[in-house]
Amino acid sequence: MPVFHTKTIESILEPVAQQVSRLVILHEEAEDGNAMPDLAVPVRAVKAAVDNLVRVGYETVNSSDDQILKQDMPPALTRVEESSLLLLDASDLLRADPYSGPARKKLIEGSRGILQGTSALLLAFDESEVRKIVRVCKNVLEYLAITEVVDRMEDLVTFVKNLSPVLTRMTKNVDAREKELTHQVHRDMLLRSLEQVKNLTPVLISGIKIFITAKQSGQGLVEAQNNRDYTVRKMSDEIHEIIRVLQLTTYDEEEWD
């Protein structure tokens, strides 16, 4: 079961997560340990990277119109920033005493905090990206909802002209997202629903066409309407399923299990 739910987050955090757990294990196995080397240079490198992340993070928060991102990102940035101060403390303490126990604790707490804070930050950013895709999906749902007012061939032409680019955008976004996920079950669910939507699109257009013809001829109107509405419902259900799966993380499923 993957720990990180996207390949991007995994590629960024997995190596540092491994290093941090190794340090924790070593610390637990050898409480007093060897003398620590001077960590001033690597700690300064971390601090510089943290300062840059904080700057970029607040720029992102200020330029975004996503209220949830604006709310979620600052605590993660604070966590990272505070953790980097623990590392600076650890480095100072170790310079005075390379065997310092409190310094080792601060080192572990600081590196763990940076890992957790960066993870929270990446998660907040990723969720914001998912909300963008969800908005595109909801746009398609809005178009599907107006199917019932399409009762002339001219309207159908306009309907298809408007629906096609939104549908293409949704397909492209969901397809790209599917490739990003580490959880195979979620990937399969997205692919299956997307395939259904693709297959149902020509069925919908043909259904609307049959409905328009039936309305003009006055024959088989109820059946044509039922068929059209059934296809709209099926497509909407699949898009709702896509939205649901997009918002899932591996953690959700473990919690559910």
Partner: peptide, 29 residues
């Protein structure tokens, strides 16, 4: 994109720091 790059830098710098600290400890274990 900038966020991802900045996060990559932090992760790399932290991993390097922790690796240096671990290396000193490992000699004892």
């Amino acid at each position: 994109e900038q966020i991802l790059e900045a996060a990559k830098s932090i992760a790399a710098a932290t991993a390097a720091l922790v690796k240096t600290a671990s290396a000193a400890q490992r000699e004892l274990v």
